[in-house]
Every structure is written in C-alpha cells, then in structure tokens.
Design a protein around this nucleic acid. Structure first.
Lengths: 208, 208
DNA sequence: AGGCACGCTAAGCGGCCGCTCACCTTCGGC
DNA sequence: GCCGAAGGTGAGCGGCCGCTTAGCGTGCCT
C-alpha cells in the first residue's frame, strides 16, 4: 500500500546486501507484513503474494519463515548498532556525542519505523540460537550508550546517580518510538530526534 | 509456572470483577499465555489447558478468543487510567503530582508486567470496534498526563517547550517498562518507579 | 543445436487452528 | 424424588497453516 511511495520518497532501502533480487523482494515484503500484523499473524502465502511470487518461491531463498525474521533482525540490529557507534566515536564532548547518538538513533526508529518495529518487537519469535545472537548485539548497543554516559559523568558534564538505570531508560525511550511513531502524524523523524536529544540531555543533567 | 507464586507473594490479582470463578481462571490463563507468546501464537487449547479445562469450556464463558483479549485490555486500561487519575487529582503541586503519577504508573507496569504487556502490545490484534474503544481510553490517559504538565508550566514549575511531545515521551518511557522489566532482574518495581519519577522531573525541568 | 542448472509454479500433504455440537454431570427448588 | 438450568466434556468440522515435491520454462556454456 505504501512501500512504493516510501521508496520513491527518496530514502534508499537499506537491503542492498541481500541478493539475489528475488530474495530481497521477499525480505522487503516480509518486513512490511511482519510490521503490520506481527510475525505469527503473517502467512508465508502473504509474504510471497506481496513479492509477486507463488508461496513455494519463498523456500528457494529461505529455509523457513523464521530464517526470514532472523535475517531481518540481524541486519536491522547491525544497522542500529552502526548508527550508535558512529555517534559514540565522534570527536566532541560527551554532551555532543550523546545528543548525536540519540537524535540519529531516534531518526532511524522513526524514519525506518517498519523495520524497527520488526527488529525491536519480534525478538521472542526467534528460536533460542538466533535469539542469543541478537541479544548479544543488544548488549553491545547498551554498552555503547552506557560508555558515553560514563564519559560524561567522568568529565563532570553529567550528573547521574544510576548509570545503568539511566542507560536503560534512554534506550527504552528511543526504542519505543518504533511503537508509536506515525508517518502521517504531525512530526517528522528529524523533529522527534531533536526533541528526544534535548529530553535525554535533561535526563542526564547536562548543561544546555 | 509462576502465577500461583505471584499471587501468593502478597499482591492481589485485580480480576475480582470477573465472575464466575471459571471465567476468571480462563482470563488469568489467557493473560499469562498472551504475555509469554503473543496473542496470535497462543491457542485456545493452551489457554484452556492452563486453566485446567477442556478446550470447549472456553466458549461457555467467552464468544471468541478475541473477546478474551478485549476484556483483558479493557480492564487493564481502566486500571492504568485509574492509577493516573488518582495521582493527578492529588493535592500537591504539579511537581509532586507528576512524580506520583509516574512512579505509580511505572510501578504498575513493572509489578503487573504480564498484564501490562498484553494491554500495551496486543492492541493491533483487536477488531476495529474494540480497538476504537481502547484508543479512546488511551487518549484519556494522555490527557491526564498532559494536564499535569500544563499545570506545571502554568505555575512556572516546569520549563517545557513542546508539551504534547513531552507528554508523549513521558508516557512512552513508562509504557516501555512492560517490555524490558524482568522480575528476576536487579530492580524492584518500587525502585524503577522512583528512578523514573526522578528522570521525568528532569525532563520537564522541575526544580529538585 | 543440445544439455542442463536455475528460478519458479501448481498441486497438495499432514497437521493444527478456532470453534461447534451432542451429550453428560451436578445441584438448588419444590 | 424429580426437573431444569448451569457448567462441563469428547469428538470432530471445515479450513488454513508451513512446507514439499514433481515438473516446467528460460538462457548460458559448450
């Protein structure tokens, strides 16, 4: 319903690494379907149909429906982690790097909301092995944000008593954007990113 | 697995309004199952089994599986809204009322995490009518928090530029507790409530 | 031109899904 | 002691699920 428009809107689909073309179309179709209805409520026939193929075509490129979710989740977490790492490795002080990290992380969750929704909310549908792999990536995400906050506390920029708890809250705030953000709503991803960066700086007691 | 222990732990199950007894046992079983696996991945056989009944017994008390989710969602939202209204109608200044509202709202999402998870994350599984009814309750939840923040801005206690955006962020932060809170984790619901009340007061620029 | 690997489809298998139905038990009122 | 209502069961229905298999078209390699 809206994918073609979104893609035509100027944003590049970040699935270039998925080949061949048919496998990518199936994966993009799966992201849409999972985001709209949830993993368990999505049928393989629905995914194949959205990709313009027969139900059996899915099994040429993926062993199971769960492998599709695993690939989506893995690529999405890699992308999210990359965004945070870029911001965390920046050259400014902790205040600037935290603002960068939050605004770009939020921008991704809002702008690529469809993907983010699947990545953040369908973890439980994965089997134990895939789940463990993704949980490890999440720990790295957490460590990245915690690192910036620890830097700010050490330099005296931030006033934070409970570093772990605050890290958790900051990430939670950002991730939940994928649940409520509405493309047709009044805010652009950029605006939400800016608002949230400001709110998070307040949370850590940074000077403005 | 854990319900009996939880109930024995001292907390009262807030399902007293559901009668007869068998209907309540089915509903409690459904809450557990929905929270663990999600609505679509839960079978009516599983729900009935957890309640110690045959699959057919479910349909004596509920017309469909969706009606179970509707009842759960309705009661849960009523409870959450009641908690907020109690805090909002308190006698203190906006700072105290916002801290009360956040800490009690968060305490509910952490302490009754199983219910909160179903209530907050399974909305899309409802049909259009039930969905609309629940969305109306959510608007009332939003209005309650926005009211306190507007009071604080008017009295000069808070420094908030974007009242609607900040309200959204505060609620989002509280609700997402239901996603990550772990009963076996290091924090009690009380501790998280206190931490979050502090973080939210910082977000609105309240004096400490 | 022949062969064959590859991508895909039509058809369908076994199984579990939500839900129904015919029947059974228990129990309070008279 | 009989009756009807209320609450429960075992068996099973139609249908959709994830996934498989046999076979077909197409185009590159020789």
């Amino acid at each position: 319903m809206s994918t073609a428009e979104e893609t035509a809107g100027g944003e590049i689909e970040p699935w270039e690494e998925v080949t061949p073309d048919a496998a990518r179309r199936l994966l993009v179709a799966a992201v849409e379907a999972f985001a709209e209805r949830g993993y368990h409520a999505t049928t393989t026939r629905d995914i194949a149909g959205r990709a313009g193929m027969s139900p059996a075509a899915l099994y040429i490129h993926y062993k199971t429906k769960e492998e599709l979710l695993h690939r989506i989740s893995r690529i999405g977490h890699d992308r999210a982690l990359g965004i945070l790492r870029t911001a965390a490795a920046g050259e400014g002080d902790a205040t600037g790097r935290l603002a960068d990290a939050v605004s770009s992380f939020v921008r991704w969750h809002a702008g690529r909301r469809t993907t983010a929704r699947v990545v953040q909310y369908e973890l439980d549908a994965l089997g134990p092995d895939a789940r463990a792999e993704i949980l490890d990536l999440r720990r790295q995400v957490d460590a990245e944000v915690r690192g910036i906050i620890e830097d700010g506390v050490a330099s005296g920029e931030f006033a934070v008593l409970d570093v772990h708890g605050t890290t958790l809250a900051v990430l939670s705030l950002c991730i939940d954007v994928a649940r409520w953000f509405n493309v047709d709503g009044p805010r652009t991803p950029d605006e939400v990113g800016e608002l949230y960066a400001d709110l998070v700086l307040r949370m850590v007691g940074a000077a403005k």
